[in-house]
Amino acid sequence: MKRSWLPGFITLGVILFLFAPLVVLVVNSFNASRFGGEWEGFTWMWYEKLWAAGEIWESLWITLKIAISASLATMVLGTLAAYALHRFRSGLQNVHHMLITLPLVMPDILMGMSLLALFVLTGVETGLLTIWIAHVTFCLSFVTMVVLGRLQDFDLTLLDAARDLGATQAQAVKKVLLPLLLPGVLAGGLLAFTLSIDDYVITFFVSGPGTTTLPLRVASMMKTSRSLPVINALSTLLIASTFLVAVCSHRLQRRA
């Protein structure tokens, strides 16, 4: 039977649509022209300006601190949550499951708004800690879902087998469950790391003085046209690192 070419054609179009703006952005980061309307020659100028922009690197450092600590915390919380969801069937887990999935469909602005309300009403000063809390909150659901997906492929009789061969409950978890779950946990952690670095909306609500993360810095730079080409350069670096992270996490999740 002849296969229709239309879906393939649309797919090609969609991929082009998704990548064209990014490609233009990457190309323009090497373009001497300020607005990138025409090619005015190759330059490293914007990267040099980026290198010299100390406040950007300061923001990157803050962003990384938050992203690393938030992804570590969510890896622990998310793995526990996923294990509980997978292992037990009960009313408690139904509630648990609902609480894990709801943040996935909560618009960012609402999560930012409600966390801000919490911090304002309880008198907590906004800053690094509040950003970290917010990031753990919105990453938790994603990490749990990734680990849960991995757990669903995990054969629970392997734990029985370990017990049968003389392992205690704790040994069975350490020697069998964790090694098999690790790729999933790492993939979840990487996802959390990317989401945390990426977040603008929620961070904007709960940030305080001296906690300008990279996306917040980019947003303020976007308001002045002088720094636009520098954003091109920065974006190119960020897209490249996203690409690396995506490939890594893809590998991790596929590894059986």
């Binding site: 009789t157 029985d160 087998a161 049968d164 069998v176």
Partner: peptide, 20 residues
Amino acid sequence: LPPEQRPVNTVFQNYALFPH
């Protein structure tokens, strides 16, 4: 007795070999 303390071992239906 818990399973790990029994003088009994099992060959599981789908073998439950540790894949790692």
